Simulated assay, not measured.
Amino acid sequence: MDNIIQQLTDVNGNILLNMEKIDNSNPADEIFYVLVLELQSLIEQREVCLKTLVSNREFVDRQCLVDQFNLSQTLILRSTKVMEDCRILAQVDNNAKRHIKAYKAIESNR
């Protein structure tokens, strides 16, 4: 059980470090996409650790679970900003593609 708690602690630390790197990077840079993919992987690892803790009937550390819940709420708030940045980039990319298509259509009509 201590192994899972230590693994969860490590994953939580990596998630927070990754979130800081994302906050300090430019969403238009390629490293941003790499960090987001890494964040998704870390979140999946955290989910596995939490499921393992919750499914074990011997684990009764209420404060640990409360702390994990609070951290989850914090991560949700912080990741919302990351998702918004990704959405904005996708929208800008779609607008650029639309403009290119319009220019191609104009050029082909000449």
Rank of each mutant, 00 (worst) to 15 (best):
M1R: 07
M1T: 09
M1D: 01
D2Y: 12
N3K: 15
N3C: 13
I4R: 03
I4V: 15
I5N: 00
I5E: 01
I5Q: 01
Q7D: 05
L8D: 02
L8E: 00
L8F: 10
L8W: 07
T9M: 05
T9A: 07
D10N: 12
N12S: 15
G13T: 04
N14D: 14
L16P: 02
L17K: 15
L17M: 14
L17F: 15
N18L: 02
E20W: 01
E20G: 06
K21V: 05
I22T: 05
D23N: 11
N24R: 13
N24S: 13
N24M: 14
S25C: 14
S25G: 04
S25N: 10
P27H: 02
A28F: 08
D29A: 09
D29P: 02
D29R: 00
E30I: 07
I31G: 01
I31K: 09
F32W: 04
F32E: 00
F32A: 00
Y33Q: 13
Y33W: 07
Y33R: 11
Y33E: 12
V34H: 06
L35N: 03
V36S: 06
E38N: 10
L39H: 09
Q40E: 07
Q40F: 03
Q40Y: 03
S41I: 00
S41P: 00
L42K: 00
I43M: 03
I43W: 02
E44D: 12
E44S: 14
Q45D: 12
Q45M: 10
C49I: 00
K51G: 13
K51W: 05
T52E: 00
V54T: 03
S55E: 05
N56C: 03
N56K: 03
E58R: 03
E58A: 05
F59R: 02
D61P: 03
D61Q: 09
R62G: 06
R62D: 11
Q63N: 15
C64I: 10
C64Q: 04
L65V: 08
V66E: 02
D67K: 03
Q68F: 11
Q68N: 08
F69Y: 15
N70V: 12
S72P: 05
Q73K: 15
Q73F: 11
Q73A: 13
T74G: 09
L75H: 10
I76T: 13
R78F: 04
R78S: 08
R78E: 05
R78W: 03
T80E: 11
T80F: 13
M83Q: 11
E84S: 13
E84D: 13
D85V: 07
D85C: 14
A90V: 06
Q91N: 14
Q91R: 07
V92M: 13
V92A: 15
V92H: 14
V92T: 12
D93P: 03
D93T: 15
D93W: 10
D93E: 14
N94E: 14
N94P: 01
N94R: 11
N95C: 11
A96E: 10
K97I: 00
K97Q: 09
K97E: 03
R98I: 06
R98P: 02
H99N: 12
H99C: 09
H99I: 14
K101E: 08
K101F: 08
A102M: 10
A102R: 10
Y103D: 01
K104T: 12
K104W: 09
A105Y: 13
A105I: 08
I106M: 08
I106C: 07
I106S: 05
I106E: 08
E107M: 10
E107Y: 07
S108I: 07
N109E: 13
N109Q: 11
R110A: 08
R110E: 07
R110H: 14
